[in-house]
Design a protein around this nucleic acid. Structure first.
Lengths: 140, 140
DNA sequence: CACTGATCCTTGATTAACTCAAGCAACGGG
DNA sequence: CCCGTTGCTTGAGTTAATCAAGGATCAGTG
């Protein structure tokens, strides 16, 4: 289990609530991945492959070094969850795509990660809209 | 940079907003730690040492194996940020405490981690209360 | 007091994530 | 046909995390 991000001593209830949310969210994500024997990073990459895409695009979107993506994709490939096809338009590049098994595992992961769904589900539709608006405003 | 926790394809705006919040929060935490040449895990442990405490208490609070804490604390000790004193009441146990330098570094970290503070600061006091209530309800 | 089992922590081994530096191959403009 | 750039991989090194095993100490019991 990754150590939580915080808390820095919260100076308000709202900050403390934010921290709790982040902590529970992250732990739930990790637990859902673990149910399918995935690391959080593997689940994350798998989740970005609804469309096939290049290694570089993944690295940029995820804000990490390309070599990190290489490593994670190699492991996903070894698990039979993705393929790396040559890109016909550019022979330097490779297109990563989920296999049928990758699709299945990912869907099961998405089903197992109930936290965000059920958290939102505890709110009325109005409250959901309120929350969305408040978070968007807070995010600036 | 740790890969983000999600998104699982969000089925509502509220879920997407939750994900965005968690992502930005985690990245900000990591960036603040990096400013002080700390890993997120080191910052996390340092933040739990306002009072001196045992290794086991840290492991339990953080939900990880004791040997993980040993490792992190050893590095913090090598950096001169914490000490491991013998526990006079139990010679098996050791009490971890921040050094003055650990205090200083941690306070600088807390100052650098502005995300939660400034996010909440973008809201009026009423909105802050609303947000807190909504998050608490969503957390169940 | 001596035993016994539990507790506290460390060590060692292993895996994964992440970063950086270096390199290869292919692209594309002159 | 160069040559700089781009896309990705490889290699080396650090950290985090887990598990298994072990040493030392404690605490209760006979």
């Amino acid at each position: 289990m990754a150590l939580p991000s915080g808390p820095v001593t919260a100076s308000s209830d709202a900050e403390a609530a934010l921290f709790d949310l982040v902590d529970v969210y992250d732990r739930a994500y990790e637990a859902a991945a673990a149910e399918l024997s995935l690391s959080p990073a593997q689940a994350c990459v798998l989740g970005r492959l609804d469309e096939r895409r290049g290694m570089g695009a993944l690295a940029e979107e995820l804000g990490c070094d390309a070599s990190n993506i290489t490593q994670i994709v190699v492991r996903l490939e070894a698990l039979g969850l993705v393929t790396r096809e040559p890109n016909p338009r550019d022979r330097r590049a490779r297109l990563v795509a989920r296999t049928p098994r990758g699709d299945e595992i990912y869907h099961r992961f998405a089903a197992a990660f109930t936290f965000a769904r059920s958290a939102v589900g505890r709110l009325t539709p109005q409250e959901q809209d309120q929350l969305t608006a408040l978070l968007r405003k807070a995010l600036g």
